[in-house]
Every structure is written in structure tokens, then in C-alpha cells.
Write a protein that binds this DNA or RNA. Structure first.
Length: 497
RNA sequence: GGCGGGUUGGCGGAGAGGUUACGCAGCGGAUUGCAAAUCCGUGAAGACCGGUUCGAUUCCGGUACCCGCCUCCA
């Protein structure tokens, strides 16, 4: 049987995945800097590596996979945001503001990523809780000649690591020739980067052999990965924009500190995200957080269920740029609504799992796997397998029901010959449901009468007013269905009697 | 300037050196008081130029265009 194959950025090839220890498969993914709501770009690696996490758990057993994703809660952007808050009138000490800010942002992050159906990682270390490990690693690097202290800074000596640049395919000399590196007087070499920097009294800081200061950005991942996963582990993931310098620097630090290790064996990088074909940016007005989408506060204007966001993300292979468009979201909404209605009352059947697992084994081909799910959706007999696939992918069925946003739980009643149904999505109020139900019955009796009189005008009139109120009307042979759409306005129905 | 990615049918988007991806839209049919929905069927592609091969959209080289990174960034 073939196993998982993954494209390793380090070797630029697709390789068979063989864990160091099948009893403990270890993965580290760079998490967010917590100073604001997660945006759409932040969410892509979360979803991508969530699928990988699920796949590893499936293959090796849930208890045999350790997934670590950090929270960066010490960072100049956080300090800057806290300083803004203080000048805006927050009277608390800066450190207290920072703590409150990062705590709150972490709660937001959990809320938003939960909404996307992402499993929580096995561990989510906060950088500030591992300062000791960072100081220790920094001391070790100095002792081994890979780092040096200058003016309260500790810098990594890039020239001391011969493979520097291997991950990103760059050479130190080329990069210096590119001349876009910060030239600081205390650096031996322009490429050297900061492991530790001094803090002024008003900034967060920790005591260290080099005075009160704070860690550089890259060291936290090296230190926490080492503490929680060991000197060598299986997979390290993150966005492609982290490939350089962040991941390059992580490798340099970790391997120089623990040459006998090897740090991460497989490096996975997800490509970037675009919005309507352009880079997401505040100036273009296409910058959205996950929360913006969930609450309808975006250019599309409608509330996008987390499952839809997840579906759109998984529709594009992780290694390709993904374009978030309203059209894709709309199609995903339709597809999921269809799938949920087909599977809601069924028991999942796992026998169809190979239909999509083989796609995932092939470098996490989620788009291909979704194609296979379409195959399952097309065949009524395989809908239980579709349900299994949906649950597997995190399009969950809490309490064995479809998510509220897709709830097509029909209120079904017999009225003469017609079956009358009102579809609803959880957000519909009970009174609105009652009105819709009565209109559906009215439609049914009007049609029954019209079949005798051959005068369909009253039927059409009611139908038109329903449509005008944003309700889709479905009239089958012995069935009448009302589907309130996104523009549904109950007030317009109350008006007509 | 350096490094990396991309270019597939009207749109979105995959795999695979030779056999239908798939979805949406379109078209034809069934069904329907009408319409929608649903069901069945169906046409349509691989930026350009070379090379390897019995055979390439799939491998190799070049050209064009697009995008990202090299500065905080998932």
C-alpha cells in the first residue's frame, strides 16, 4: 500500500513520508502573532495543516500524533498596539495592556478557527512562557561560537552555518548583493539576525545574561519546537512567506545549537491568498478577517458560514495561490447546502474512504478529494459515504445535524395531496417559520382549487409575493417547498393576508 | 538585481506519459398548470516555440505574460 507523499520544500521534491517514530508523529506549524483578529491569509495554513493533522491521526492513530502551533505574544507589533491603546486612554500599565490584548486575541483566534472546523493542536505554547528556553538556546549558541553579543543585542553569526540559505535556495552573498538588508553598525555581517534585543524600561523585558531584554522573533519557534518536539521531528509547516527569513533562521539556530539533531525533516509551505485576484491589503479595500466573513462584514455582504470558508480553502491545492472570490464562496455554499441536505438523516459509512484518502495521500490533494466527494454525492447509494467524508474533513455534524446555516430540516405536513415543506436555516425566527408554513399551506390549497377552476391567477399572485419577499418557491407534483433566501423579509409577508 | 511559483475548456479547478477529473454556467431531453428545483444526456481545454518519445496537456529547454518573496507578514 502506498503511503503519504508530501512535497518537501527542503528537497523540492515529492517524497514518501516516513515518520521518525510512528508512535509519535510530530508536527510544528508557525502560529499567529496575537495583536488582532486573524485575517483570511492567517486562516489558510490553519485549515491546510488541520487536514494534514487529521490525515496523520487517521493513519497513525489520534494518540500517536503531536501537533504544536505557537502563539507569538511578544512582538513589536503587539507593543505598538498596546501603546496605541494607552494613548487612547487605557490607564493600565503597558504590560497589563499587553497581557489583556494577547489574551483576548487568543480567545478570538480560537473562536474563529473553531468556526472553520479546525481541530485544536495538541499544544499551543505562548512564547512568553518559554523565555527561559530561548535564553538557554541563545547562551548555547554563543558558547558554540554561532552567536555574539554587541551592545545588549545577541546576534546569530550567519557565516558560521555553512548551509544557510539551503531552504530558500539563496546564498548569503547573493542576498547581500541584493542590498536589501538592514545594515546595523553592531553586526559583524549584514545578514546576521537578532536572537535577543534590549528592552527599554517601558517595554516588556526579561532578565538575561545580556541585561533586561526580549527575544528576537525566530528564536521562539526553535526553542519551543525543541522543548515540545525534540531536536528532530517530522514536519514543519507555515506560509511560504515565512520560508525566508523566518524558517531559514530557525533551521540555522536549531541545527547549530543541536548539530546532532536535524530539526524538521519535511518542510511544507502553503502559498499565499488573494482576494478577487489581488493581494489582500487594507488600501485596496479587500482586507478581511475571518470574523468579517462570518458576520457578513465584507464586500460580498452576506454571512459566510465557517464551513464555506473551509470548503473554499480546500478547493485549491495548498501549494498554489488561492483566490478568494465571492463567486467561489457562493458555489461552495450551494454545494454544501446540497450535501448537507443529502446526508443529514444518514449514518456515515466509512467504506468509501479510499475514494478520497488516496487523493490526500498524494501531497494533500484536497481539491481532488472534493472531486471524489462530488462523485459520492451523485450516487444516492453512496450518500452515507459522502457523510463519512464530510465528517472526516471537518464539515461536522454536531448532534448529528447539519450546521445551522445549512439546516434544511423540513417541517413536513400533509395537506390534502401536497406535502408542504419549509426549509430553514437556523437563523430564521420561529414566527417567520410559522408565517412561511401558513403561506405554504395557502399555496397548496389555492393550487388545489385552481386545478378545478383552471384559474391559476391567485396561485401566481401568492407565488409572486413570496418571491418578492425573498422566498424561493418550489412546486413539484405533490409537493410545495418554500426556501427563504438571504434576502428574506418576513415583514413583507405579514403585510399580505 | 537575486530566489521561487503560476499559465488547463465560458468560469473555477485536479490527477495522470497513452484510457471521462470534477463543480458552476451552457445546450438537449424528462418532469411541471407556469416557473424553479430535480433527474438523464451532451459539446468544450491545456500560453507560445522547440526537444525527448511509438505517443506529452503531463518530462526537458527556451520565450512571453502574471504573481509572490528578498522589509513586518500565513
Amino acid at each position: 500500500m502506498t503511503g503519504i507523499r508530501l512535497h518537501n520544500t527542503l528537497t523540492r521534491r515529492k517524497e514518501d513520508f516516513a515518520p521518525l517514530d510512528p508512535e509519535n508523529v510530530r508536527m510544528y506549524v508557525c502560529g499567529p502573532t496575537v495583536y488582532d483578529r486573524a485575517h483570511l491569509g492567517n486562516a489558510r495554513p490553519v485549515v491546510v495543516f488541520d487536514v494534514l493533522f487529521r490525515l496523520l491521526r487517521h493513519v497513525y492513530g489520534a494518540e500517536h500524533v503531536t501537533y504544536v502551533r505557537n502563539f507569538t505574544d511578544v512582538d513589536d507589533k503587539i507593543n505598538a498596539r498596546a501603546a496605541e491603546m494607552r494613548s487612547a486612554g487605557d490607564a493600565r500599565p503597558l504590560e497589563a495592556i499587553i497581557r489583556a490584548l494577547t489574551d483576548e486575541t487568543i480567545r478570538w483566534y480560537h473562536d474563529d478557527m473553531d468556526a472553520l472546523g479546525a481541530l485544536r493542536p495538541s499544544a499551543e505554547p505562548r512564547a512568553t512562557e518559554w523565555i527561559g528556553a530561548m535564553v538557554a538556546m541563545t547562551r548555547d549558541l554563543i558558547a558554540k561560537g554561532h552567536a555574539y553579543e554587541r551592545d545588549g543585542h545577541v546576534l546569530f553569526r550567519v557565516r558560521s552555518y555553512k548551509d544557510y540559505g539551503r531552504l530558500s535556495g539563496r546564498s548569503v552573498d547573493d542576498m547581500i548583493a541584493g542590498a536589501r538588508v538592514e545594515v546595523a553598525p553592531f553586526k559583524e555581517d549584514p545578514m546576521d539576525f537578532v536572537l535577543w534585543k534590549p528592552s527599554t524600561p517601558d517595554l516588556p523585558g526579561w532578565d538575561s545574561p545580556w541585561g533586561r531584554g526580549r527575544p528576537g522573533w525566530h528564536i521562539e519557534c526553535s526553542a519551543m519546537a525543541r522543548e515540545l518536539l525534540g531536536e528532530t521531528f517530522d514536519i514543519h509547516g507555515g506560509g511560504i512567506d515565512l520560508q525566508f527569513p523566518h524558517h531559514e533562521n530557525e533551521i540555522a539556530q536549531s541545527i547549530c545549537a543541536h548539530p546532532e539533531g536535524g530539526f524538521a525533516r519535511v518542510w511544507l509551505h502553503n502559498e499565499m491568498l488573494l482576494v478577487e485576484g489581488r493581494k489582500m491589503s487594507k488600501s485596496l479595500g479587500n482586507f478581511f478577517t475571518v470574523r468579517d466573513l462570518l458576520e457578513g462584514n465584507w464586500s460580498g455582504g452576506w454571512k459566510v458560514p465557517g464551513e464555506v470558508i473551509r470548503f473554499v480553502y480546500l478547493s485549491t491545492h495548498y501549494s498554489k495561490p488561492m483566490d478568494w472570490t465571492e463567486e467561489k464562496a457562493r458555489q461552495a455554499m450551494e454545494t454544501l447546502t446540497d450535501w448537507y441536505s443529502k446526508t443529514e438523516d444518514l449514518d456515515a459509512d466509512s467504506q468509501g474512504r479510499w475514494a478520497f484518502l488516496l487523493n490526500l495521500f498524494n501531497d494533500l490533494d484536497t481539491a481532488g478529494a472534493i472531486g471524489k466527494m462530488h462523485d459520492l454525492a451523485r450516487d444516492v447509494a453512496r450518500h452515507p459515504e459522502l457523510k463519512y467524508a464530510m465528517e472526516w474533513f471537518g464539515f461536522g455534524f454536531p448532534d448529528r445535524l447539519a450546521p445551522d446555516a445549512f439546516r434544511v430540516k423540513m417541517a413536513t405536513e400533509n395537506n390534502g395531496a401536497d406535502i408542504v415543506r419549509v426549509s430553514w436555516a437556523g437563523s430564521l425566527s420561529p414566527s417567520a417559520k410559522r408565517i412561511l408554513m401558513s403561506k405554504a399551506h395557502m399555496l397548496s390549497s389555492l393550487r388545489a382549487a385552481a386545478k378545478e377552476t383552471k384559474d391559476f391567477a391567485p396561485v401566481d399572485a401568492l407565488k409572486s409575493s413570496l418571491v418578492a419577499a425573498g422566498v424561493e418557491v418550489r412546486m413539484a407534483k405533490n409537493e410545495i417547498g418554500l426556501v427563504p433566501g438571504p434576502d428574506f423579509d418576513p415583514a413583507k409577508l405579514e403585510a399580505l393576508k
